[in-house]
Design a protein around this nucleic acid. Sequence first.
DNA 1: CTGTTAGCGCCTTCAT
DNA 2: ATGAAGGCGCTAACAG
Lengths: 339, 339
Amino acid sequence: MVTLTDVAAAAGVSTATVSHVINQTRHVAPSTVERVRRAIRDTGYHRNPHARALRTATTESVGFVASDIANPFSTAVMRGIAAALRQARYTMLVANADESPALEREIVDTLTRQRVDGLIVALTAESSDSDIAHIASRGLPVVLIDRAVPLAVDQVLVENTESVAVLVGEMLDLGHRRIAIVAGKEHHSTTMERVEGWRLAHRQRGLTPDEALISSGAVDADDARLATARLLGLADPPTAFFSASNVISLGVLRGLMEAGLSVPDQISFAAFDDLEWADLLGTPITCLAQPTFELGQSAVALLLRRLADPNAEYRTLRLPPEPCHRKSITVPRTGGAPA
Amino acid sequence: MVTLTDVAAAAGVSTATVSHVINQTRHVAPSTVERVRRAIRDTGYHRNPHARALRTATTESVGFVASDIANPFSTAVMRGIAAALRQARYTMLVANADESPALEREIVDTLTRQRVDGLIVALTAESSDSDIAHIASRGLPVVLIDRAVPLAVDQVLVENTESVAVLVGEMLDLGHRRIAIVAGKEHHSTTMERVEGWRLAHRQRGLTPDEALISSGAVDADDARLATARLLGLADPPTAFFSASNVISLGVLRGLMEAGLSVPDQISFAAFDDLEWADLLGTPITCLAQPTFELGQSAVALLLRRLADPNAEYRTLRLPPEPCHRKSITVPRTGGAPA
DNA sequence: CTGTTAGCGCCTTCAT
DNA sequence: ATGAAGGCGCTAACAG
């Protein structure tokens, strides 16, 4: 491996000068710069990141902790992170929490010991307040994704309440009066905000939402499938479903299928999160697509900002989801004959 | 940060001794070991990976170059890699080639300069022979995934020909005589092997495959959709389709849907790669599921083996896909009435 | 405008 | 069975 010393020798200058032209950290005579540049090119020199890290205690790398590397949401966000980091010439270390808060803690610690400059964490569904506090208190710059937490930490989230209110509002305006909502863990900010959007849509129209139509607590597709079956069994069953996330959509759609209900003629359906293959169901699904790439990019932006200024005030970014109007909602079937 | 020196002081020994108990690199008196261990625990010491990397020129990290981080295949493999690396106490750096061979080269170089110990690369569909040669000649241990290349390099692949032959054979035995196959780039080993499996199934039954039923060259879902439309327009159209990958399946299914054909009553369908949501199509799809997690694990195993013994002979692992018999293939509709 | 030099934290040879 | 000490490649005082 060619080292700084080799380059210095080749250019006939000291290592200090070479270092300074590389890092542009003090003025060097143009002619010298030129000679050094050529020497670097000729020798094919690339600096040793570990020597630099040792000396400066800075690695130009950030760790991404994925809640579940198999979830398309995580990987879509990761794509944005990767792109932004590459542009900033940072390296990305990735670890998978596999939806386990215990593993998540362990990974955060490992990454911290790797001396990454900062961490971007997409929390698992089960991460407790103390898990989150643990993560935020590692002494490392951290950006949290997806869930609002009441801590002094940078966060990037999606706008939930308003967006859901608009979409559920459209269903109400179509004539639906029994719209079920299937959502995740009840105390999560995303769940609460999305359910609140559902309530808001009703209130805005002077309607009183029936809380019996809310089913929260689903952590996987099968929970959602069961919840759907239960809701369909209500004395006064829903004429439409709103799903609060992609995993939940899988379950709700399965539940509807098992009940022999076709979307949208027999039941309307809309969801948070887009599904890439949604057009194959016969009925493309109306949804609120998350700006995943931008979420990742913004997380990086927030992190770099804090790296540049550790004392900046903590910021929470809210990105709007994109409404995709497709074909899965229509007027409700009242009784047997269409309206 | 607490350093080796701190620990040595706390234990009343030299740094050499501490280093040796940590790395178990020479015999140390049990009582001393005990004291050192306690000192490590008491001080909360963790070794600085960069100091170690600088000294030993080894980083205990490997880079994963994903052809397309948004493709579920890549991320499923990555999951296996992450798990295996974690177990081996290695760190994973990830970069996304985003299906661009140029970016792929750049990333490989970047990762190499990061001094990772080795690289696992899932090649992009467009990577040329020279791209691949470039990657394999970085002087770094490399494991290639998914595509067979005639180079001295470790590889982990899926068994294609036999598996496809069996599945296509089942369709032939059901009575299908016009089975179309839609596949990727024609000169890729995966394409060639899977098409060869299709031919083999025919030959094994004394049938002559009609090469007009082969459509290769699709690089994305839309190519596959168009190919499907074209095949359906044949004078003697297919009664069944075999898709060579998950992206292609998306396109073929769209093509069939656009043609108003329902699976399997009007047309049979089977594919390489599983689709998580396949059950929602009404008809769960019969397929050959790739052992993605194992592919990732095996890639790591191969890499660690080479790290341990740089002169080991190069090895190519072939993992069998898992046949999933579901409901998307049935007997062909001959004319109007069922057989 | 440029050079000299002291470490950053660790491993490892050489000595004892 | 243990210690002393040099040096991996780099940056940043300090000095000129």
